[in-house]
């Protein structure tokens, strides 16, 4: 299965992820029926290894995507929004869907032609942007309300050589890594109970991850996220190479021991990886999980991704596969 394609179609804006829980439960079905939604909307599945007192390994991949929320319905069928994480520079160029009351509404960004713009070339503030639904206001009010999430309309476009541009590549690429790793490890004896946490609210601060980590209290956690891939304006070492393999993270906030074991797993199976060095914070759920409860040793696997927080996030299937192999090796052999 092309997990990324399947997952990128899911509508899970930050803070309103629970709607996709049934779809994820279905994907986790071959491994466990123990899937539930936490108080904050993370979708967690537990896969016991069968040993009593086994170590508990959490695999955290945040499920949510950048989003906006309706803040105003305006005469003429327009909406104004507040933004969580979206790249403002692409917003007037993107396709949007309002997740309304039982019905999705398409919203088109309002732009004026250059000769009518006061300051052409300026990226508008959130409050200056408006979106057109093509509906009369009274009809719009029946379908959408203040507070409704607005997402980049899901889109998946195949590029050359197993690469793809899609919405929510951040972080469905990592959800795909987890599902593929479970597939690879299926039928093999695991070293630990595996707790899969498709965490909510990463893009708005990591509340989903730290609360799930507290509740399930794992002995260690591997955080799977995406990180910057090289582009002409962002060379090494600011970014990893797309197609160069998953990036293993190094940061004072992460566990050296767990990171070394992860590297050893990659070396054992001869899978290439890159190193991502973060001198301070990781900017991921790892920052929250590591200090959850009495503290949890964390390591990171990051899939290289171009154009983060736009509707066309580019990843390479080879990186997802390589990450999944390393993760599966770690699940099986520690």
């Amino acid at each position: 299965m092309n997990y990324l394609k399947t997952l990128s179609a899911l509508e899970a804006p930050s803070g309103a992820e629970h709607g996709v829980a049934p779809a994820l439960a279905e994907l986790l079905k071959p491994y466990t029926s123990d899937v539930r939604i936490t108080a904050l909307g993370s979708v967690v599945g537990v896969i016991p290894c069968g040993e009593p007192e086994a170590k508990k390994l959490m695999l955290d991949a945040h499920l949510d995507s950048v989003a906006a929320f309706v803040t105003e319905l305006v005469e003429g069928g327009f909406v104004r929004v507040g933004v969580v994480g979206m790249d403002r520079r692409v917003m007037l160029n993107a396709e949007f869907t309002i997740l309304g009351k039982g019905e999705n509404v398409r919203a088109v960004p309002c732009v004026l032609p250059p000769h009518l713009q006061k300051e052409s070339g300026k990226v508008p503030e959130d409050s200056e942007m408006a979106f057109d639904t093509g509906l009369p206001l009274d009809e719009l009010k029946k379908k959408a309300a203040i507070g409704d999430p607005v997402i980049f309309t899901p889109k998946y476009a195949e590029l050359l050589g197993g690469r793809a541009a899609c919405t929510s590549g951040d972080n469905r690429a990592s959800c795909a890594v987890v599902l593929r790793a479970l597939e690879l490890a299926k039928g093999k004896k695991a070293q630990s109970d595996v707790i899969v946490s498709f965490a909510s609210q990463e893009e708005s601060g990591g509340s989903g991850a730290c609360t799930a980590a507290f509740e399930y209290a794992p002995d260690e956690a591997i955080i799977l996220d995406v990180s910057f891939a090289q582009t002409p304006d962002t060379p090494y070492p600011k970014a990893g190479k797309l197609g160069g393999g998953v990036m293993i993270g190094f940061s004072p906030r992460l566990s050296r021991e767990l990171t070394d074991r992860l590297r050893a797993a990659a070396d054992r199976i001869g899978e290439a990886y890159q190193s991502e060095v973060m001198p301070r914070d990781t900017g991921t759920d790892a920052d929250e999980i590591a200090v959850s409860g009495k503290g949890i040793p964390c390591a990171m696997l990051s899939t290289p991704l171009r154009y983060m927080h736009t509707p066309a996030e580019v990843t390479d299937a080879a990186d997802i596969e390589s990450a999944a192999k390393i993760l599966a090796e770690y699940i099986i052999n520690g």
């Binding site: 790249d87 403002r88 520079r89 692409v90 007037l92 160029n93 993107a94 732009v111 032609p113 250059p114 052409s120 070339g121 990226v123 889109k155 476009a157 195949e158 590029l159 050359l160 541009a165 910057f228 582009t231 304006d233 962002t234 600011k238 900017g283 171009r306 154009y307 983060m308 927080h309 736009t310 509707p311 066309a312 580019v314």
Partner: peptide, 28 residues
């Protein structure tokens, strides 16, 4: 004449071939 706001992040096509208009990542 294409607006500057209508470039970045858009997917283009030439037949079946797709092309993303990429730019520097927001965070960087």
């Amino acid at each position: 004449g294409i607006l500057e706001s209508a470039l970045h992040g858009r997917v283009l096509r030439k037949g079946d071939l797709k092309c993303v208009i990429g730019g520097k990542t927001w965070h960087l």
